[in-house]
Design a protein around this nucleic acid. Sequence first.
DNA 1: CATATAGTCAACCACATGGTTCAGTATCAA
DNA 2: TTGATACTGAACCATGTGGTTGACTATATG
Lengths: 105, 105
Amino acid sequence: MNALDTTFAALSHEARRSILAKLADGETRLSDLAGPFAMSQTAVSKHVRVLSDAGLVTVERRGRSRYCRLNAAPMKEASDWLADYEAFWGQQFDNLARYLAENRD
Amino acid sequence: MNALDTTFAALSHEARRSILAKLADGETRLSDLAGPFAMSQTAVSKHVRVLSDAGLVTVERRGRSRYCRLNAAPMKEASDWLADYEAFWGQQFDNLARYLAENRD
DNA sequence: CATATAGTCAACCACATGGTTCAGTATCAA
DNA sequence: TTGATACTGAACCATGTGGTTGACTATATG
């Protein structure tokens, strides 16, 4: 898997996007990330691992705690990729319209 | 899975992003999509199905062929989500720098 | 030292993903 | 009608994902 693959895959789960949103407010302990989720700390830890593997989060151990920080850099590549399609966003019906025009009888 | 989940998941595979890139040049038959890939047409068909389920591609049958068209609309939501983090893209080392500053002895 | 806290690791489960092959269907063309 | 073309669908396989529980390690605190 290349960088875009892992970035998009990491972003494809609501829990992980929520984790990133919380980290945007600043460094957060892993246990504090787990709080609002209806899942075990182990599960949250796995999500953080996916984010960490994707380079979106850096985890640092201090004492008993793991402190997670946002690293948004990989998002830029994803955003740049999407930006190439910006010209098409308003055209969702254009292709259909063109087809209908071409096949009008 | 919500819309963002399926959109990001659909974009997380190189083959599917390549398919979207080709569709940006215009409507393409499924068999013509399969050409450059080292995989069976069945596999390509599955990828197109994933894109179709995500609303990124519309498939229309005409005669024997399936014509695929790009529908970039769902990308906008993904791009908007990423844009919220734009302020952090340049800060990939800032958190580390701050931490080091705070813990200087 | 004893105990609570923070987290990992391993094992397990159900299900999804990404690929294959083979058989079948629908359409076009000779 | 025969046969090629363009698929789809089912079955299968290996691997990944997302979750659990229970045991373990490491650290802080009384």
